[in-house]
Design a protein around this nucleic acid. Structure first.
Lengths: 336, 336
DNA sequence: ACATCCTTTGCAATCGATTGACAAGCGTTT
DNA sequence: AAACGCTTGTCAATCGATTGCAAAGGATGT
């Protein structure tokens, strides 16, 4: 028993396949007489006809699909951006776009491989939330075949349509906050600098430290990845520093949490022994017994703009791209 | 400028398209002389040839794609299962399967719609982590066209190949624990009972309460969804009960966290004022200042078995399905 | 009545890879 | 030398929807 296809349905209804195709489509529907169109739609539904999208994709050369690269599916912020972006798109793109979501785990080489797969599947566009410095070439090549949009992470020296957060400003806000509270020696626990987000956060923070004359302990502390495990490991380095910092800027909430855990193990308390500020305003930062000060990520704006970029780049060939960067805001809670 | 296709590549290499197809495939490669095969693979790589998977899917009638239904992308447990399952599959299925991930948010009707999309895209299989009682028909229909695997959530009265956790046993463990600690009056905060997970957890818990002669406050407390917001709301009902329970079983960690937050707001402490046990052993349960007792979900086993089911159902037509259910384990921490 | 235009529908080519049927080449056996 | 098997490669049909083109039918204007 084989699926009902358009040819078969056409035979039943006594019309040509092409008429059915047009009647069921969004953009060519006006070419079919209203009465015929309604009859076809009605009958197609009744017969349980479901168009084969692999065939449609082949013929059209696009699949109504968007490839999404994400560093870590366990990260609330990335998920929120993906979710918000597609909710936004669903409301204004017909037929709807199906996301192909792939996780890079920030492993070098993953991007190349996954982008190849996306292109093989003839995605209408690629959205990368996972870009690192080394991805520039791959993405530039990909952009020849499908529009590429960067969200969250930029690539320095490359120009792609993008929807970003002003991470430098975010870092600066944290340093300003520390200065205002009278801290003299501070530190950052930095995420991997291949991701522009972390690089910019570090830069904004350091600039203000310099301007305000507070000491940042040299070289900072680098986490191999931005997870709580890395945060835990970071605490040792932090406490070994001399002079010892009184406040620390963790490049995201997961790192901050790791630091907090490690402190608890040692019987240290925050903010008394060490003030802490994170980044992202994750759910977790709010529910800690001592809630975490953090930088609120402009998820809504970034997602919406990323969605807009995708929609326009797919829809209007002559679209002039407007990359945008949105400003985050510092949320001061009890941890600092 | 058009993409390089097989026809073009064939012309360049002076062989037929079919030879190229076979040389590049996994299963038909033995039909091509080793020397020719290597030459073709080499040249294809050099020329940057990338097969068009939409065309291949059309011809084959399957797309090397697996549709995944998940209730909530923000839930760590579901994400871990998806990730682990595909990691497992990637290592033993060639060519690799691309996941199509879709979120139902437990909205009725979402499943039907998303399953239609999956079938239109000719997925090789569908994995549902989001099944509810009302999904039985839709999934049964879908199973006529592609194998359907249930993970995490079963559907009562329907028999699908499945990879589950013994939630009833999990609930029972919690009740036993409460009884052993001498609690006389206890309560559950139940997730929506359309999801079999919650129904079974409730059942296992109640059975043991009855057997051990401890009072469960009548009707329990139902959360409209299993999120921390619902947990917050639940606390009021809990405290209003008479006699007042001394311990509560939250059907997942998010609910537990909501209860904890609400307690903090009222100046109550756990376990002193109310003992709490959650479910899933999420990262969060470990890092709370007072860590949460919880039931550890057998993520690894469930994911691996779900992967096995998918692999076999796709690969061997005559495969006899072995549904399995794995036992969770109680982790007692400071909260109970 | 005839030319013209518009609406509606049908015809047939097309997208690019896969695969069953078959042929050519070659060596071995009878 | 005929028959046979085996390996290697070619031919051509096929998957199912989309779309440029043309034809049919109807309405309108002169």
């Amino acid at each position: 028993m084989t699926r009902l296809n358009m040819r078969e349905l056409a035979r039943k209804l006594g019309v040509d396949r092409s008429t059915i195709s047009r009647a069921l489509s969004e953009d060519k529907a006006h070419l079919v007489a209203a009465e015929t169109r309604e009859r076809i739609r009605e009958e197609a539904r009744a017969a349980g006809y479901r168009p084969d999208l692999t065939a449609a994709s082949l013929r059209r050369g696009r699949s109504h699909t968007v490839g999404v690269l994400v560093p870590d599916l366990g990260n609330e912020t990335f998920i929120n951006v993906i979710r918000t972006m597609f909710r936004h798109l669903d409301q204004r793109v017909v037929p709807p776009l199906t996301p192909l979501i792939a996780e890079t785990l920030d492993q070098s080489g993953a991007t190349r491989h996954l982008v190849q797969t996306f292109l093989s599947r003839r995605v209408d566009a690629i959205v990368s939330l996972a870009s690192t410095e080394t991805d520039a070439d791959v993405l530039r090549d990909a952009a020849k075949e499908a529009p590429v949009v960067l969200a969250i992470r930029a690539i320095s020296g490359a120009s792609f349509p993008s929807a970003l957060c002003d991470d430098r400003a975010g870092g600066a806000m944290v340093a300003t906050h520390f200065a205002d509270r009278g801290h003299k020696v501070v530190c950052q626990v930095q995420g991997p600098p291949m991701a522009a987000t972390f690089k910019q956060r570090a830069r904004g923070f350091s600039e203000v430290c310099r301007d305000r004359g507070i000491a940042e302990i040299p070289h900072g502390v680098f986490a191999d990845n931005a997870t709580s495990a890395a945060g835990k490991r970071a605490l040792d380095a932090l406490l070994a520093a001399s002079p010892r910092p009184t406040a620390v800027f963790a490049h995201n909430d997961a790192l901050a949490l790791g630091i907090i855990e490690a402190m608890r193990h040692r019987g240290l308390r925050y903010p008394a022994d060490l003030a802490i500020v994170g980044f992202n305003n994750t759910h977790l930062s709010r529910v800690l017994a001592v809630p975490l000060s953090t930088v609120d990520y402009p998820v809504e704006e970034v997602s919406r703009h990323a969605g807009e970029l995708v929609r326009n780049l797919i829809g209007n060939p002559g679209y002039t791209v407007e990359s945008r960067s949105f400003t985050p805001s510092l949320i001061v809670r009890a941890s600092s």
